[in-house]
Structure formats: C-alpha cells, structure tokens
Design a protein around this nucleic acid. Sequence first.
DNA 1: CCAAAAGTGTTGACCGTACACCCATGA
DNA 2: TCATGGGTGTACGGTCAACACTTTTGG
Lengths: 231, 231
Amino acid sequence: MSRYYPQEDRQLLAVDCIIFGFDHGQLKLLLLKRNFEPDKGKWSLAGGFLNKSESLDAAAGRVLNQLTGLRDVFLEQLRVYGEPERDPGGRVVSVAYFALLKVEDYNEDLVYGNGAHWQAIENIPDLLYDHRVMVDKALRRLRRKAKTQPIGFELLPESFTLPQLQSLYEAIYQKELDKRNFRKKILSMDLLDKLTEKDKSASKKGAFLYQFNQSKYEELVAKGFYFSLDV
Amino acid sequence: MSRYYPQEDRQLLAVDCIIFGFDHGQLKLLLLKRNFEPDKGKWSLAGGFLNKSESLDAAAGRVLNQLTGLRDVFLEQLRVYGEPERDPGGRVVSVAYFALLKVEDYNEDLVYGNGAHWQAIENIPDLLYDHRVMVDKALRRLRRKAKTQPIGFELLPESFTLPQLQSLYEAIYQKELDKRNFRKKILSMDLLDKLTEKDKSASKKGAFLYQFNQSKYEELVAKGFYFSLDV
DNA sequence: CCAAAAGTGTTGACCGTACACCCATGA
DNA sequence: TCATGGGTGTACGGTCAACACTTTTGG
C-alpha cells in the first residue's frame, strides 16, 4: 500500500511478449494455444501478470524464460495497451514487449509443453483480444529498427553466412535484395569478422561464416557511426 | 472487479505528459511546480492517475486539458515506466505521453494558476523521480519523428513563415541549417500552400506566410510518399 | 560434367551539401 | 541611405540501384 496515494483506482497489469525467430528462411512468431479459460483453444501471445515489486522488464523476462528457458534475450518494450474493454474478462492494462531470439537456443520441451508453436509471419492465425494489433506494431518496429541498428544478429546464430544474413533481411522486409549491393553495404561497415570455416549445409561450394563484432560496433558508435541498411 | 482474474496484484497507474511548445525561437517544456506533498516546490511533469474505465489516451488528454484548456492536441504514448522504486511515495506505474502544442492557443490563466511555466529545453531544472529520463526520451522521439513525419507543424501557428519553420527545426536539432537547402527541400515536397499575405513582425521586408496542407499530405502518403527532412 | 549456390565491379542517376549575392522596406 | 532579414541557383561528391558472369564442388 502506498503511503501517499491510498485512495486511487488500481489496475491489473500484464505483459505480453511478441517473440520473433528466424528459421528456414522465414520470420516466425512464437504463439500459444491457450489451454485454460477464457478462450481456451484460441491463439495468443505469451503473457503474464506483473508481480508486486517486480519491474515491467523483469516480468517480461520471466514470461519469456518460463516459455523458452532462455535468459539474456533481446527484449524491448513496445507499447502499453489500456483500452478499458480490450480484455472482455475484466480490465487489464497490458504492456507489450518484443523479443528477438535465436531459434537454435530455445528449449523445445518447454516450448511445446506449454502449447507454443512457431508460426510464419505471413500466416498468423487469429489472435485473442488486441494481440494482432500488438503483433503488427512489433513488426513495424522490427522493420524500422533493423534498418538503423544491428538487431538482426539477435535472430541469427553466433556464426552465420552472408547469404543467411541476406535471407533474414529479405524475410523481415518481404522483399528480394541484390546480393552484390547487400554484401557491399554490410561489409563496408566493417562490423563482421570473417572466419576461416565455411558452412556447406546450403551449397556444395560452401559460404564463409562471419560473426558480428559487438565491441567494434560500440567503438564505431562512440565515434559517431550510425548503422544503416536501406532495404 | 474482474470475473476471471480476481486474485492478482493491482497497481496504481499514472500518466505523465511531456508538453512541448515553440516560442521565441526556443523549444520549451511546460513544467509544474508542485504545490502539494510529497516534494512540494519541486518541478515535475504534468501528471495524474488513471481513472477506472478510462483509456490511457483519455487520461493523458484529460491531464493536458486540465492544465492548458486545450483539446485535440497532438498527443502520443511514449513509454511506460514501471520500476518498483521509481516513486518513493509508493509503487506507481507511469505511462509517459508527449504532446506538441501551439503556444498561442493555451489558456494562460489556467496554466499559471496551476503553477506551470514554460522552460527552454536547454535549461531544464531538476525534475522529480525519473521525469528527466522521460523528458530525454521524449526529446529523442521528437527528433526522430520530426525527420520523417510532418509533426513540426503541430508546434507552429496555422500560418507561419519559412524562416519560422526553419527556426523551429533549428531549435529541435540545436543546429543551424542552410536556408537555401532548407527551403528547397521543404518546398519540393509540395505540402505547403503559400498565402498572399506576409508577416512583417520579424523584418521590414516581411516573409510570406504558408500553411501546411494536411489533405495533400495524406493524398501523397497514399501514393507511397514519405516525408523526409534530414537535418 | 553439370547443377546450384557463392562470390565479385562498374556505371548512371539522384540527392545532399556547400556556398554568395540581390531585394524590399522601415526607420 | 542603410541596416536587417527575405529570397534565390549552381556545382561537386557521395551514395543507391541496376546489372551478368566466373568459381567451386558434390553428386
């Protein structure tokens, strides 16, 4: 109880997570089939209520961890949704978060045990309440941010090939890119370390592996560098 | 009371408004000197609690209206702040909004009666709690959006001169701009209607007045146009 | 030896930026 | 007449976009 503000209305606060993954050339969302009332059987985002004395970021991290087993995932607040009638079960103000994770890392048993499934963004089922609005907002945010910040790497394994990276951007923007221009642009930023190994899983010739160099990025940013990839 | 979620923790929800105005060549914030405990006498943003069955946007609009007498002002959600200890008086989750208003429109009696004052952004006093963080966030948002959306006009009178418009952008970005390039760019978008009158308040020669043409803007956007002013 | 993906450079168009002088007018 | 701010055009350089062929290798 507050010392100073005892008499005001209080609200239920929830967090909902829009969880992106990149797999088999497709951008996907991790969605849940609800196994409890209300709306049992419908698809929804992963969500949960805010605990007393828990920060919003912590609540979102907890929800994500309970579902995937992952910690230290890219997680960013998106927007609050507070229309009085958004949840017909009662007034709940919800804070939407968007998460980017590496699909090879998550705990499959946990995910499927929770009734969650990856769904390609081109083919999202009907969602509960205003969850579709949240998803659209998250997609717009991802598309905006991926142009100006190196967040795409959050969706790829530690080591990746340039064709893989290009395919990720193509999935995000639903648009084919010219590979010469794409390579020229990304390599000219000097943020990728080329490894000596190749990945031969996608071709006979094999493609060189690269790693994103976070510390080089921070160094450049400190000197006034701006990441920029216009698709 | 919720039918379905009766047992969860509930929180106090507030809104805080970061209110921008443009006056005498300066970008300013409308700040309040608190006349009640706690922290009486300190500066803060305009804020208030969310009422039961009121949307967040409505709450922010109400707070703004109570302070300035204005309605239909540019008002946009910024971010939620939910650290458990952000308000030492008790846990309050606050939704920050940023507002852009035309300084010639507000109700002076109301504003001063409420203990509010315009403060130039170069010279903001110490603020309560995390309000300074909110202000910085709002400034970054304004700077980002003003490049890609025609929101600057929200801060100017209906009719304005090009030198005034340029001075607004200079105040937002704290940077001098070349007037030939600025004019060329903004006029090439074909979004401004030139009036036949001049404003002679700032010079003997007088500068032509212009008006932003909202419907022309919407028409162009529908055709794929993107507003872009790179400062 | 062939299919399939990886890798590589050049050119033209457009846009952003830098830059200096004349005009109108009230005092 | 002069001081003050309003108004105008050009040229250069860099960046984006379009475009086709060679290389490697497993089957």
